[in-house]
Design a protein around this nucleic acid. Structure first.
Lengths: 230, 230
DNA sequence: GCTCACTTAAAACAGTTGTTTGAATCATAC
DNA sequence: GTATGATTCAAACAACTGTTTTAAGTGAGC
């Protein structure tokens, strides 16, 4: 009777999202026009505003449909770790793996757009579309809090401030590794072995090495004015 | 007599470059219009095409005027190291410092636009404007070759492939640390100590830790299908 | 005075932008 | 069949894009 009049999805909506995702990562948000999106999706120009309301809302939905799921998996992986440990402190490497390994798995999926999306996410970290910035901040708030808390517990001897910064650095290394490898090819011609399956262990070693590095020493002399005073 | 009829610089040109630099880092290349640039620079809209020829040429000049000098300093620092060592192998930490420390010094200069430019450079690594991509590749070619060569010599036991990847990761960590800190503020509210003077030692420790991390093991079992199989 | 190269100015160029409109089409329910 | 709601379509909207044109202003050398 009063069935929700919703045949599961007319697929036009999804074709638009896929096209937008691919075009955004290639040209950026601003340089990608609605006409580029709809023509690649085989849809009418008015379809975007019909299904999403505006270009900004489309951008947001491109992120929402994947990021929510990614962060859900990250939290699930962390909770699995904590359940298995039964109160014992976690190994930092497992925590890092739960966060970055989960993302790298999505980045390794080239068949369902996961790779495309992770490239887009990586480049968006430095592309401050106001709309997306706000959305990412909200979407990441809980995940960051939980993972930082886990790391604080796993590394009780390391100042929390330092863990925070190093998590920041790790996100940068990962983003750039994914987004920069096939974008700006600074290292083109140098790579002999760019096997994407080996990216994960390579990046993991690097991230853990950085996380466990000796703590920096802050020379008070260099605090203000630094070298130019000499 | 035949003095080149060039009063040093009418400064309109420089005002445009400064305005463009600041607006590009805030909105990106595409979202920054010529009218935004010229109005912020207090110049006429036609001035850009008069002084630079086109928007693409302006973008290129924004990078050229700073990047050429930065890479010159990097090479000079490396040559100084090699001269001081007199043939002896260099310490990896000194090489890393010559490359990343030099860049971080520029990023610490908030008075002459160095900070702004480094943020722009960081975000550009993942923003593939075709024009800029080509330019950066050319501008970096020699520097990368020299620094990679130095690292190969300093770390003879580490496979070159691995050094290459780790240099890649290091560039990502630095770019994100600079561009992402005041752009997308994912970690807003977490940082108690965001003293920019301490960013350098913090990042340096992280980078060196990553560079010297234990080498990854490539398990052939995990090549296809990965971790979920377990 | 005048010339000449350089720089700035206002206005217009054709093309593209995101968005809206109102009619046409479609699939389903009765 | 008709009625109903969801979806698609071509066309148009005003606003903005990078670039060009043409004229006016500038200051030095003669």
């Amino acid at each position: 009777m009063s069935q929700p009049v919703r045949p599961p999805a007319p697929e036009t909506r999804d074709r638009i999202l896929d096209a937008a995702e691919a075009l955004f990562v290639e040209h950026g948000f601003e340089a990608t026009s609605m006409r580029m999106i709809t023509s690649q999706a085989g849809a009418n120009i008015a379809a975007v505003n019909y299904h999403f309301g505006s270009k900004d809302a489309l951008i947001q939905e491109v992120f929402r449909r994947r990021l929510t799921e990614l962060n859900r998996q990250r939290l699930a992986a962390l909770e699995r770790l904590q359940a298995d440990a039964g109160g014992a402190p976690l190994k930092p490497s497992r925590i890092v793996d739960a966060f970055f390994g989960t993302a790298l798995e999505l980045a390794a999926d080239t068949e369902h757009g996961g790779h495309t999306f992770m490239r887009l996410l990586g480049r968006t970290y430095t592309e401050p579309n106001a709309f997306v910035r706000q959305f990412l901040a909200e979407e990441y708030a809980e995940v960051l809090e939980r993972f930082l808390g886990a790391l604080y517990g796993a590394l009780p001897d390391v100042p929390r401030e330092e863990i925070l910064w190093r998590f920041h650095f790790m996100m940068g290394a990962m983003s750039y590794a994914i987004a920069g490898t096939d974008g700006l090819q600074l290292f083109a011609g140098h790579f002999d072995d760019a096997d994407p399956q080996r990216l994960m262990p390579r990046l993991m070693s690097f991230l853990l090495g950085g996380l466990r590095a000796p703590l920096p020493e802050f020379s008070e002399v260099a605090r203000k004015g630094g070298r130019e005073a000499a």
